[in-house]
């Protein structure tokens, strides 16, 4: 799997300009007084998109077929993509925090420790959701068709979220307030619940991707 990992690192090296734009926008946000945690959140979401770009690169000119005749199993390929996704998420957190500290030396900002964990967890969930939806779609439909599939999937997720809130409203439940209360009353439970949801999402997505790859024909 190390070979695949190295290949993806080389591919990401080719995305230098994309990474530079993310860094520049993040610095801009920080200098304009944005909350550092929202910048970390932005970086995580953008880095999640990079996983998809490595799959798109692999698929160019039927290249995935060639990768699979190298000593790589279909399972290893899928596993490496999810590991890369998690790795990029962690890298975005570290890079975002370092950037926030560095920018705060020039322009001190109010570091909201209270809200930090909530925003960070929400960002992790969002990044996991993006990866969980996009990786199997990209593997199933390839670079061209996946754009349409991705729009449909985003629509479905938005609709699902809308209905959850609607149903909660009809039962006089305030989802936002519920989360705030959970954060205030039991932070450990909140983080635990968030991480379990993230792990579940990724687990289901990984199983789906594995099935897609096993059935993929070249």
């Amino acid at each position: 799997m190390k070979g695949l990992w190295l290949k993806d690192m080389k591919l990401l090296k080719n995305q230098k300009s994309f990474l530079a734009v993310i860094a520049a926008i993040s610095i801009g946000f920080l200098l304009s007084g944005q909350n550092p945690s929202s910048v970390v959140s932005y970086m995580m979401v953008m880095c999640s998109i990079l996983v998809i770009s490595t799959i798109a690169y692999d698929e160019q000119n039927n290249g995935l077929a060639f990768l699979l005749v190298l000593p790589v199993s279909r399972k290893q390929y899928v596993r490496e993509k999810y590991a890369l996704g998690i790795g990029l998420m962690l890298a975005a957190i570290v890079a975002g925090e370092i950037l926030s500290v560095l920018v705060s030396l020039i322009k001190p900002s109010v570091y909201e420790k209270e809200g930090w964990i909530v925003v960070l967890l929400a960002s992790v969930l969002m990044a996991v959701l993006i990866q969980s939806v996009t990786i199997p779609i990209q593997l199933k439909f390839g670079a061209e068709k996946s754009r349409i599939a991705m729009l449909v999937a985003i629509g479905c997720v938005a609709l699902a979220a809308y209905f959850v809130v609607k149903i909660a409203d009809s039962r006089h439940m305030d989802v936002g307030m519920g989360i705030v209360q959970l954060v205030q009353n039991d932070r450990i439970l909140f983080v635990g619940c968030g991480l379990i949801v993230a792990a579940l999402l990724m687990g289901v997505s990984y199983a789906a991707s594995l099935q897609i790859m096993k059935k993929k024909q070249f």
Partner: peptide
């Protein structure tokens, strides 16, 4: 196995120098 496929290969963004560590770790 050593394989050559007629319609597929390494991605064009790589150089041979890029491929060496990848191949070293795969084989």
């Amino acid at each position: 196995l050593g394989v050559v496929l007629s319609d597929s290969g390494f991605n064009g963004v790589f150089t041979i120098q890029d491929l060496v560590p990848v191949l070293k770790n795969l084989y």
